[in-house]
Amino acid sequence: MKRLLSLDILRGITVCGMILVNNAGGPVSYAPLRHSVWNGLTPCDLVFPFFLFMVGISTYISLRKFNFEPTSEVVKKIVRRTFLIILIGLAIDWFGYVCNGDFFPIDTLRIPGVLQRIGLCYGIVSLMVIYINHKYLPWICGGLLLAYSILLLTGNGYACDDTNLLAVIDRGVFGEAHLYKKSPIDPEGLAGTLSAVAHTLIGFMCGRLLLEKISVNKRIVKLITAAVIMLVIGYVLSIWMPINKRVWSTTFVLVTCGWGSLLLALLMYVIDVKNINKGWTFFLVFGMNPLFLYVLSEVVAIIFSQWEIKDAIYQTITIAVPDEYLASLIYSLLFCSVMGLTGYILHRKKIYIKI
Rank of each mutant, 00 (worst) to 15 (best):
I88P: 00
I19F: 06
V37M: 12
L90F: 14
S195Q: 03
G96N: 10
V270H: 04
R80A: 07
T108Y: 09
A177K: 14
R219A: 01
F68Y: 15
T251S: 15
S72H: 10
S183L: 07
P32H: 03
V285C: 15
Y352D: 02
P43S: 05
W240V: 12
C16S: 09
N275G: 05
P49K: 02
D311C: 06
V255P: 02
K310I: 01
C16N: 07
F51W: 08
E188T: 03
L209A: 09
A301R: 08
L46V: 06
G56A: 07
K222F: 11
V79C: 13
P322G: 08
G12E: 07
S305F: 13
Y269P: 02
L231P: 09
N244T: 13
S337A: 13
I85K: 02
L329P: 06
L152S: 01
L284W: 01
V253M: 00
V253E: 07
Q315Y: 07
G12Y: 04
N156D: 15
L237H: 05
T318K: 14
V236Y: 13
L151H: 12
A191I: 14
M1D: 07
H199S: 14
V321T: 12
A91E: 06
I224R: 09
I118Q: 02
K274M: 14
P322M: 10
N39S: 11
L334V: 15
G123P: 01
S72E: 15
K354R: 15
V37P: 00
D323H: 07
Y325V: 01
I220V: 13
T250S: 15
V173T: 11
C160M: 13
S195H: 01
L127N: 00
Y352H: 13
I355Q: 05
V98S: 10
L63W: 04
G142V: 09
C160L: 12
K182C: 09
D311M: 10
W248R: 00
N67L: 10
I124T: 13
T342F: 14
P70E: 11
I111M: 14
I214F: 03
Y122H: 10
N67A: 11
L179N: 00
G12C: 08
L4K: 08
F95D: 08
S195A: 15
L41E: 10
V28I: 11
F292M: 05
R80C: 07
L152G: 01
I276H: 13
K182T: 13
N244F: 03
V74G: 05
H134M: 04
Y269C: 04
I276P: 00
F174S: 04
N100P: 02
F174A: 04
L41P: 04
I88L: 15
W280S: 07
T251D: 03
R348Y: 09
I302E: 12
I185N: 05
G189M: 03
W259K: 03
T256R: 12
L333F: 09
Y344D: 06
L7K: 09
L90I: 11
V98P: 02
S332T: 05
S149D: 12
K310H: 11
I303Y: 09
I169Y: 13
R246Y: 15
